[in-house]
Design a protein around this nucleic acid. Structure first.
Lengths: 162, 162
DNA sequence: ATTGAAAATATAGGCGA
DNA sequence: TCGCCTATATTTTCAAT
């Protein structure tokens, strides 16, 4: 396999980490300003960012949308337990979760649950409709438990690098 | 209060939604290319993006870092139940969760738990240390339950806009 | 591997329709 | 509101150290 297989750790020096911390806050920061903050020239910063993107350390550059501002004020968690861990049944469920646009995040977990989902919807009736599609319609779902988020206290995907 | 108070919904037409869907995938897409895709001029696209940022529809522009590539391969959930819902005790806990850099996401939820946390760490022993700081050291934490993510099936903060 | 300058892109703002 | 045009800023490339 190549030298940067999908899961291998990339070594980062102090400067790389400083750059990543800045970009995780605001990736529109100009290379010139980043250069000032990390005591480097702009092209040097540019090369480092390019490397971070090519090696997959930076997975994506995205705009974060406020769900409440676009009419999707309800965030909730669904904890899903499956009947059987058979691979084909697991795959079917997994694919249905990935395909649902309301599902922002889906993790396969150990413990009392098998999947943990983070979901964003316009209304509780939309959520009910979604549970019918994803859970009740799948025989392999043993049970699920819902937690409604009353406050999105802290939301992000930042990885602290020190 | 002003015309764009913090939680009010902003009306978006079809074009705004198309732009947001593009930017949620890749906010480095140039205004020129966006303009082609939505059949508008680049300056028109620019004005719309500016409005979306000023009204807070676009909350932030960030780089997404792959946790495994930077040596933090472990993602987990902590479901936390509190003893008392007293405001001051809630605030203390809430602040400690927000302050912890390992805590990527923190939601205050209804149901059997009070808080749901998404956490990213280097190792299980780092997680153990974190639980001591956040949970065992806080008398108001009744109990907590951990779910280790074996697979980050789908991870993002995108809001589907149709 | 860094610098500094030049070329190519991209963004921001003014103006008339 | 848009599209066009122009000015500014930023990113990218390249020669030289």
């Amino acid at each position: 396999m190549s030298e940067n297989s999908r899961t291998d750790e990339i070594s980062l020096d102090r400067t790389d980490k400083a750059i990543l911390n800045l970009l995780q806050r605001d990736n529109k920061t100009s290379q010139r300003k980043i250069a000032e903050q990390v005591n480097l020239s702009a092209p040097a910063v540019q090369r480092r960012i390019k490397r971070l993107e090519e090696t997959g350390v930076i997975q994506a550059n995205v705009a974060i949308v406020d769900p409440a501002k676009v009419g999707q004020p309800i965030t909730l968690f669904a904890q899903v337990a499956m009947e059987s861990e058979r691979t084909d049944l697991y795959e079917t469920a997994r694919r249905s979760f990935v395909a649902a646009p309301e599902v922002q995040q889906c993790y396969y977990v150990t413990g009392e649950a098998d999947f943990m989902l983070v979901i964003s919807v316009r209304s509780m009736s939309d959520y009910e409709a979604l549970t019918r599609r994803l859970f009740f319609q799948n025989n392999n779902v043993k049970h699920f438990r819902t937690f409604v988020a009353m406050d999105r206290v802290k939301v992000g995907l930042s990885i602290p690098l020190g």
